[in-house]
Design a protein around this nucleic acid. Structure first.
Lengths: 104, 104
DNA sequence: GAATCAAATAAGTTTTCACTTATCTATTGG
DNA sequence: CCAATAGATAAGTGAAAACTTATTTGATTC
């Protein structure tokens, strides 16, 4: 799990769509495919890339494999972004409001 | 400027290295190349991709073109990341500390 | 205004990577 | 134990994209 894997994984729009769909709730690979013009092997390969980047993690449940967002990958992006916080001072207030919301 | 352009731009490790070097301070394309095994046209092409993603902006200064980090692109990443804030509650405290630092 | 230097662009080549089809593995239920 | 189903893997193909060399554009200085 490093910047390289993560940004490469998110660099593909299809993979980002998969991730974003997963973020609405954990589901298995078949459910992910629904309404998403993508073959079974392609989905499996994309999920492998996302998993390798720690953006997604799996949990086998019988014959199905359930996928969910892995916070570790997101944290790494947040860390990357934080390095450049000097460049967005104007956005600090918005971020503060965000954190206040999260407290409730 | 959209998620696609940004993540595609950052998906390439060379381009991310260029961006990260630029984040240490604005400089022109030649200065960026120093110690960075990369040809002049390649650098120019990478900068064009970064510029197109609003991660970097240019300002011609005579014969040189000065490049600097563009906060707009970073803000878009922050926005993308914020959508998934539900997934990193454990990191809230760390982020708060970060904001406290920024106030000073 | 010719020479020089920074950077961009054009065109072609090579490498990477997202796909395909085919096959295999794992798990369940009859 | 066998048929069915979910998913992974293997191998090959085509397209995208990161490079190359050559040339062009823009600006400076002598």
């Amino acid at each position: 799990m490093n910047d390289d894997d993560i940004f490469r994984a998110l660099g593909d729009p299809t993979r980002r769509a998969i991730f974003e769909k997963l973020a609405t709730g954990a589901m298995n690979a078949s459910a992910l495919r629904e309404g998403m013009a993508i073959s079974q092997p392609a989905m499996s390969q994309h999920l492998a890339v996302l998993r390798n980047a720690n953006l997604v993690r799996e949990e086998r449940q019988g014959r199905f494999v359930n996928y969910e967002v892995d916070p570790d990958g997101l944290a790494l992006i947040a860390g990357w972004l934080a390095k450049y916080r000097a460049y967005w001072p104007a956005r600090i207030d918005a971020l503060k409001d965000l954190l206040k919301d999260m407290d409730q």
